[in-house]
Design a protein around this nucleic acid. Structure first.
Lengths: 342, 342
DNA sequence: CTGTTAGCGCTTTCAC
DNA sequence: GTGAAAGCGCTAACAG
């Protein structure tokens, strides 16, 4: 019952093709890669042989010989987060335009395997795009010291030997705070994202800064999913907040759902703001006020940075991409404006 | 400004390690792979050298020498569809348990590049999982004839030289029809998925079969996203349908949103049924009646089939995984039961 | 233009 | 146990 070719698929090699076409392996290679002019009649014979034998070049052998894989690797924490597919599409487009394919790996938010995955990616890709909000700084230092093209996505860590690009989370949250303050809100709650997430820290940093404008902020531990938001929403009432900010749109939507169930009207009794502007168009029946992450540009530019790094081997300054405020239906002036004085 | 190592990162080779440790390359290999007993003191020296030099084996060279990549490839049409991340997580878990990593590629619903991507995957993976609802039969035949481990996901095509596994879409839609019929519905509309999709054809096949039970079905062209559902929803009124079935949950949710805007009450005036049971928990405020795809099991079992195929080189019968009906709040008896007679 | 000759970095007999 | 040598399949000088 066992197939004789067991364990070694695609056994037809470039020499087989050469033999079949009556030429040398190098000629086959030349025809296939178009590196040198080849006699048209020979080329035709080669193509025939390729087709007949179903020959496909072995990627490992090519990689070895060329010293290049023709591939870039991307590590993302969680494919289920709608944030990433959009980034990935942009990355793929850029990569393809440079003749490279994209290999995606998911760490599933598990920091313990993340390091290994990156190493794997480095061993089999020309460059890697690393999106790892929670990896410890120590690991990051080790990885970026590897002298392998690597760009950091949505995480800026000073002093690392790798270029980085990120949405300006701090600026985005400032936009939100400004909007809320201008509506007259003073007491704000924040449903916090993952503890050790850099992106979350940036949001909190902005919240802190906003205190200078008279905003008083209560931070509630939460998470990054709609279920987290749903679960944590009940806590908000106790804080006396008239407005709720969140780690992301998913959390916000979860919170809105819960608020509805609790009989709290949004935005009349409580303003709710998201983050990321994930297009859940026509799914969530809430026009959520939020800030948008430029995911396409993020992916595009990150990929370009990596490409530059791979060919020219020098990096630049970290870049922050601005976010944009979208005021929709989930924010309004507070019902009763409380005096800032306690 | 140019880095001297330009174009060739990771230049430290196994021989470098050997030299540093005062042993041969073969010994280093043996230590690293644990293939043979090696003197502990030598092993220690090797490990030190590895650490010192930051050595990482070159994946291409390993692949070439071993005739194995230690990788399986997965091609999915669209990562933005929440359906796939769940499948992928299951696939990854299985692959990892077999010591293989997973490389994901997205075809972005573009059939023209899909074939190439699969070929790429075949050239650099030990096996591939292909999820391609729209690829033409001809391409499929070519690909599956390649004598390279390949399993088809969510698509059963008779006569192909590759094992296949799929959710039982036909059965799922039958469940829905049964539910609707028992509620008393007679006129049903269907918001159809992508034209050439096999999964869509299966659903339609079930709808046709349901006619035997007195259901009369109008098929409306639509698509697979919530926006499509939103856009197509207006057409439903004209069909006289009392119940609406859809290609998937996203479409259903989009339709529900539109219905609300149009003042059509769900389920009182129109029952709506989804497909897939994508957990948009706490995001959509609709308890959508739907059937669930066993995504985890699908991924798990597909990965196992592939693993078997890679090691034992023989395939089995196509397998259909049953779907399950979840009756929630979006379906109810029709307001006025029309007589089947015209 | 085309064939021959060396490797790319690693694993794996094969001798010692 | 360990080293030397051959070879995985391909590309890239190098000669003709």
């Amino acid at each position: 019952m066992r197939n004789p070719r067991q364990g070694r698929p695609n056994r037809v090699t470039i020499s087989d093709v050469g033999a079949a076409a009556g030429v040398s392996a190098s000629t086959v290679s030349r025809v296939l890669n178009g590196t040198t002019k080849v006699d048209p009649s020979l080329a035709a014979r080669v193509h025939d042989a390729v087709r007949q034998l179903g020959y496909r070049p072995n990627a490992a052998a090519q990689g070895l010989a060329r010293g290049e894989w023709g591939t870039i690797g991307v590590l993302v924490p969680d494919l289920a987060n709608p944030y990433f597919p959009e980034v990935l599409k942009a990355v793929s487009a850029v990569a393809r335009s440079h003749g490279r394919r994209v290999m995606v790996m998911e760490s599933d938010e598990d920091p313990s395997i993340e390091h290994d995955l990156v190493e794997d990616l480095m061993r089999s890709c020309d460059g890697v795009l690393l999106c790892s909000p929670r990896m410890g700084r120590a690991d990051l230092v080790v990885l970026t010291a590897r002298d392998h093209p690597l760009v950091l996505l949505d995480r800026i860590v000073p002093g690392l030997a790798a270029p980085a690009i990120s949405a300006d989370f701090f600026g985005g949250m400032m936009l939100i705070c400004g909007h809320l303050a201008q509506l007259g809100h003073r007491q704000v709650a924040y449903l916090s994202g993952p503890e050790v997430s850099w992106a979350n820290a940036e949001r909190i940093r902005a919240l802190e800064a906003a205190k200078a404008f008279g905003l008083s902020v209560t931070i509630l531990p939460c998470g990054s999913t709609s279920s987290c938001g749903y679960a944590a929403a009940a806590e908000v009432a106790g804080t006396g907040a008239t407005a709720l900010t969140t780690y992301n749109d998913l959390v916000a939507l979860g919170a809105v759902t819960r608020m509805r169930e609790l009989g709290v009207r949004v935005p009349e009794e409580l303003s709710v703001v998201g983050f990321d502007d994930i297009a859940l168009d026509h799914v969530a029946h809430t026009g959520l006020t939020t800030v948008s992450t430029p995911r396409g540009q993020l992916g595009r530019q990150a990929a370009e940075m990596l490409e530059t790094l791979m060919t020219e081997r020098h990096d630049g300054e970290p870049v922050y991409l601005p976010m944009e405020l979208h005021v929709r239906d989930s924010t309004a002036p507070p019902r009763v404006t409380r005096e800032p004085a306690e």
